Amino acid sequence: MNADRETNRLPLRAGAMLLLAIAVVCLGLGIHQLTMSDEAPDAGLKAAGESAQAAASAERSQQAAAPSSTPAQTSARTADTAGVPKLCVLNAGNVTGLAGEVSKTLTDAGFKVGETANLSTGSISENTIFYNPDQEEAAKKVAAAVPGGADLAARPAVFTRCADELAVIVVSR
């Protein structure tokens, strides 16, 4: 070995031995995990598949047992939402997916939902519906269908989002 070369570099053989030692430790930990486990390695996957099949089976049986809506029920639902413009559901709270949940509830009630998104604001602390002056009656119908209820407020001039739609701003369930 030449004394003029860098002496602080690790020799190739020492690096290979270090990598071999790490591989042996990892192999030993893997064998230990397999021998200490009471279940077969794929038992968790099998249980998950069985529970998914059971859930799908239960959902199919529920759908088969549920009575289908009659034309009278459908027309009554449409009559309740007649004259209501498209809705814009915005989540201004801390509950993840709240706008989607409320949107589904309103769609199931017969309302038409356009945009569903998040709204970053700290000024709204309760479920609120912003409406234009000619939309007050429609806003009252929607407020009755919002889970947990909603306050009505005339649309502020600075709130330009969903201009022609009723803005349903949800904060809580």
Rank of each mutant, 00 (worst) to 15 (best):
Lys86Ala: 14
Glu136Lys: 15
Asn94Asp: 11
Ser123Met: 13
Thr78Asn: 13
Ser125Pro: 04
Ser125Asn: 11
Gln73Tyr: 06
Ile124Asn: 14
Leu119Glu: 06
Lys141Val: 03
Gly122Ile: 00
Asn94Phe: 01
Val102Met: 07
Asp80Pro: 00
Ala139His: 06
Glu126Gly: 07
Arg77Ala: 13
Glu101Lys: 14
Asp134Trp: 04
Tyr131Trp: 06
Ser68Thr: 00
Ser125Gln: 10
Pro71Tyr: 02
Asn127Phe: 12
Val113Met: 08
Gly83Gln: 06
Ala64Leu: 09
Lys104Gly: 15
Ala117Glu: 02
Ala99Glu: 12
Ser103Trp: 07
Glu136Ser: 14
Ala66Gln: 01
Gly114Thr: 02
Arg77Asp: 07
Lys104Phe: 02
Val146Trp: 03
Ser125Val: 08
Thr121Leu: 05
Gly148Phe: 02
Ala65His: 03
Asn127Ile: 09
Gln135Tyr: 01
Tyr131Glu: 04
Leu106Ala: 07
Ser75Ala: 10
Pro133His: 12
Ile129Phe: 14
Glu137Cys: 10
Glu126Gln: 15
Leu106Met: 09
Gly110Gln: 03
Gly100Met: 14
Glu101Gly: 10
Ala138Phe: 08
Asp134Phe: 03
Ala139Pro: 03
Glu126Lys: 15
Leu119Val: 03
Pro85Phe: 11
Gly100Lys: 15
Leu106His: 07
Val113Thr: 14
Ala82Arg: 15
Val113Asp: 10
Gly83Asn: 05
Ser75Pro: 01
Ser120Gly: 11
Ala145Trp: 03
Gln63Ala: 11
Ala66Met: 02
Thr128Lys: 03
Ser103Ile: 06
Val142Glu: 01
Gly149Thr: 05
Gln135Val: 02
Ala99Ser: 15
Thr107His: 03
Lys141Gly: 01
Thr107Gly: 12
Ala138Lys: 12
Gly149Cys: 05
Asn132Val: 08
Ser68Lys: 01
Ala92Pro: 05
Phe111Ile: 08
Asn132Phe: 00
Ala79Pro: 04
Ala79Lys: 08
Ala82Phe: 15
Phe130Gln: 09
Ser68Tyr: 00
Asp80Asn: 12
Ala138Ile: 07
Gly122His: 00
Gly83Leu: 08
Leu98Gln: 08
Lys112Met: 06
Gln63Asn: 12
Asn118Leu: 10
Gly100Thr: 15
Ala76Leu: 03
Pro67Leu: 09
Gly122Phe: 00
Pro85Tyr: 11
Ala92Val: 12
Glu115Met: 02
Asn132Arg: 14
Ala138Trp: 06
